[in-house]
Design a protein around this nucleic acid. Structure first.
Length: 522
RNA sequence: AGAAUUAUAGCUUAAUGGUAAAGCAGUCCACUCAUAAUGGAUGGAUCAAAGUUCAAUUCUUUGUAGUUCUACCA
């Protein structure tokens, strides 16, 4: 599916759909939110650069008791409240050059209709029934707490760990989804499709859990008396549809459910490792029950730690994404997160590492451009003499081999990066980018153009600028701004994939050999 | 507390039971096309203990530490 290499100029356009989780906007965006959006953005941009019909959604999950209570506390209507919260996430996306195709909100009108429709389908097929939900309820918080978030006091009372409020075992009437009916089906799904969840560790973890633990039915509504801010259960104004259907159906809404457009046939969900259960248990079960095709894949990423430890306010090590972008710039942050992305574990953030990553961009990438744009060279002339230069052979066989290897590296860069990009392995793709940049810098060093006659001088800097040009076209998904600056500095107009080969563009270079106008500075 | 998973050089990663690889940082050398940049050379590590094995980073057990989940907070 993603692994086939297709000839460059005969790209088959296959629909591709990638999603982040939709974020609960009761707290400020953190580095994890940015990371999810960024991976999807890069993957989406790569697909588009490759000529694919691609679609990327992110958004906000806006119903629920916490939002309701927070809005009441501010004496603001909930809708107005979430309108302002959604803007916070949209602003983060805009600041970070996240180019989503749809920002979906669970309060969107078409989403409410889709949720109602899914609910009706599940009910008609007999998967929903009335039952009683029992749980630990705190009257003063108006919240049910899971067993893991309560403790027993010395006087025997059970209280919430978070708020200290007393909780009591309480029952209420809810609608339930027959999730327990799907345990065997889910196990079969996983065993038949080991690639459905990647990385493999998360697949193993979930499979073991499904096999060793019972699966209980799932409450999918809440009483309207308690939760006013939610989608009403069709035909029953005493109940509101709960998050498991409300939020998860966003992926269908974005694909125009119930028709379901072409993107749903090739859907990948990117999620954090703390919400595997919702996307890999509840969601496929709901889809099976409604007889809707499943997404193609769920990709699970780890968390960003700070200096090896979990970020927390009490530790004082929370990284504010907007702050680091302000300090270091959008593209360096994008580049750093992608360069250090590891899907099968947690990722480590430190400002020292970010600074070093940024320095490298200046020293090796931006500087490669400036080495070739110096006043002693003439790129425009070199490109006019392209045919002559391209036939020239160096006397030194080692140098000639280096030139040949560099040409080959430039020409295979797309294929190498593509293999990694389609698997969301941005770190490996970036290593390929660095490899070709390093080869070019080394070639310039070894060939010493400053000591040569015009013809060979021109050939050497031609290799340099061609490397920078092609690498910049291909790094656009990761660093949209800096690649734009480099291509501008080189006076390159043709920035599409068909020009990402050695010698494919001879129209650039006019007037670029002058001092200053660095693409990036320290 | 239980389960899963992770632990390699100052930092970030790699290695299918067979001589632990790389980038950055450090040290030394060279160079000036370029932004105190660039290139080369170089020293450096498998969390701890035990076991299995001709041979263990890798397999097994135990311990320590990090992360997540423990199933309707999301």
């Amino acid at each position: 599916m993603f692994k086939r290499t297709i000839p460059l100029l005969q790209r088959v356009s296959k629909p591709f759909y990638i999603t982040t989780p939709i974020f609960y906007p009761n707290a400020a965006p953190h580095l994890g939110h940015l990371y999810s959006m960024l991976l999807c953005d890069v993957r989406n941009r790569w697909a588009k650069l490759s000529g694919n019909d691609s679609f990327f959604t992110t958004g906000t999950d806006e119903h629920g008791l916490k939002i309701q209570l927070a809005a009441e506390a501010k004496n603001v209507p909930p809708k107005q409240f979430v309108d302002s919260l959604a803007l916070v996430f949209k602003d983060l996306a805009a600041t970070c050059s996240i180019d989503y195709d749809r920002f979906i909100r669970t309060t969107d009108e078409d989403h409410v209709k889709a949720v109602e429709q899914v609910w009706n389908t599940l009910q008609e097929k007999g998967w929903i029934y009335e039952g009683e939900h029992e749980g630990w309820y705190a009257i003063s918080d108006e919240t049910f707490y899971p067993r893991t978030q309560i403790k027993q006091e010395e006087d025997g009372k059970w209280v919430s760990i978070e708020s200290g409020s007393e909780v009591k075992l309480t029952k209420e009437k809810n609608y339930f989804f027959k999730l327990s009916e799907f345990r065997e089906k889910l196990i079969q799904l996983l065993e038949s499709n080991p690639q459905w969840i990647i990385p493999g560790q998360k697949y193993n973890e979930l499979l073991n859990e499904l096999k060793s633990q019972p699966l209980a039915d799932l409450s999918v509504s809440r009483p309207s008396a308690r939760l006013k801010w939610g989608i009403q259960v069709p035909g029953d104004d005493s109940q509101r549809i709960y998050v498991w259907i409300d939020a998860l159906v966003n992926y269908l809404t974005s694909c125009k459910y119930p028709e379901l457009n072409q993107y749903w046939s090739n859907a990948t969900h990117l999620i954090g490792k703390d919400i595997i259960r919702f996307h890999c248990v509840y969601w496929p079960a709901l889809l099976m029950a409604a007889e809707i095709p499943l997404p193609k894949q769920v990709v699970v990423h780890g968390h960003w730690l700070c200096e090896g430890s979990k970020m927390s306010k009490s530790k004082g090590n929370v990284v504010d994404p907007l702050q680091i972008i302000n300090d270091y710039g959008v593209d360096p942050v994008r580049f750093f997160l992608c360069e250090n992305s590891v899907l099968n574990g947690d990722n480590n953030f430190s400002v020292e590492s970010l600074q070093r990553s940024r320095d490298q961009l200046v020293d090796k990438y931006s500087n490669l451009v400036m080495r070739c744009c110096g006043k002693k060279f003439n790129v425009e002339r070199a490109l006019k003499e392209y045919d002559t230069l391209n036939e020239h052979q160096f006397e030194d066989p080692i140098l000639q081999q280096q030139l040949t290897n560099l040409k080959q590296s430039i020409n295979s860069l797309y294929d190498k990066m593509n293999t990694d990009m389609v698997q969301l392995n941005t770190a490996a793709a970036i290593q390929e980018f660095w490899s070709v940049i390093s080869d070019a810098n080394q070639f310039i060093q070894d060939s010493e153009p400053w000591k040569r006659e015009q013809l060979e001088k021109d050939l050497i800097i031609l290799m340099g600028v061609e490397t920078a040009r092609v690498a910049s076209i291909l790094i656009q998904p990761v660093m949209p701004e800096l690649s734009l600056k480099v291509l501008d500095r080189l006076n390159v107009v043709n920035r599409d994939l068909s020009h990402a080969k050695f010698g494919a563009d001879k129209s650039y270079g006019k007037g670029i050999n002058r001092a200053g106008d660095y693409p990036m500075t320290k």
